[in-house]
Simulated assay, not measured.
Amino acid sequence: MSKVLVLNASYEPLNVTNWRRAVVLMLKGKAEQIEHNGKYVYPELPLPTVIRLRHYVRVPYKEIPLTRRNILYRDSHSCQYCGYTGDDLTLDHVIPRSRHGGDSWENIVTACVRCNVKKGNRTPKEANMILRHQPRRPYSSLHFEVAKQVKGGVHQEWRKYVIGV
């Protein structure tokens, strides 16, 4: 039915869960409802879209894996040189591997085949091609999920709880 943003006691985003789990946490007194969408589970229980845990939970930092799928998602499935969106996208090293450019979030972007071939073994500046967005490491894997929901227009109320969306 609906996804629910779970905030720590400090209002820091922790997780995205389903509405059933969120309602159970609220009924057990472990969480409180912060936002709802006007729909109701029961007449006296609104369907939550954001809940906050009553006690602070320590969460270890989790590194986001550098994968093709994650890079495509970070770059919104579009060429970072011309803006093309389609199925035949490739990954391009901003500083080519032959020039000791490594595999990192800051050095790999999504590119269409045409732009990747045009750029070749050069830097964007040498190829006279401008990057639409400077590549950067994502904030967290949760950031990916929240950004997808907010940009999709589903949960605009989440925007105020997440930095950079």
Rank of each mutant, 00 (worst) to 15 (best):
G152Y: 11
I64G: 00
K118H: 10
P96I: 13
S76E: 14
V6P: 08
T67Y: 07
R74M: 13
H36R: 04
G38E: 07
G29D: 07
H100Q: 06
Q149P: 03
K148W: 08
L131K: 05
M1G: 12
E35D: 13
V162D: 08
G153C: 10
S2R: 05
P135S: 09
D87L: 13
E44V: 05
I95N: 06
T49L: 06
I108S: 01
E44T: 09
H100C: 01
Q156R: 11
G83R: 14
W19T: 09
L66H: 08
Y161L: 00
H55Y: 10
I34T: 01
E157Y: 10
E106I: 04
G83K: 15
E63I: 11
E44I: 02
I130E: 12
L131V: 07
C82P: 07
A111P: 01
V94M: 08
R54W: 04
S10W: 05
R20A: 08
V23P: 00
C79K: 07
P46G: 12
T110L: 04
P60F: 11
N15S: 12
H77T: 03
V23Y: 02
W19A: 09
L45G: 09
Y40G: 00
L91K: 04
E63P: 00
R132N: 09
V146I: 14
V4I: 12
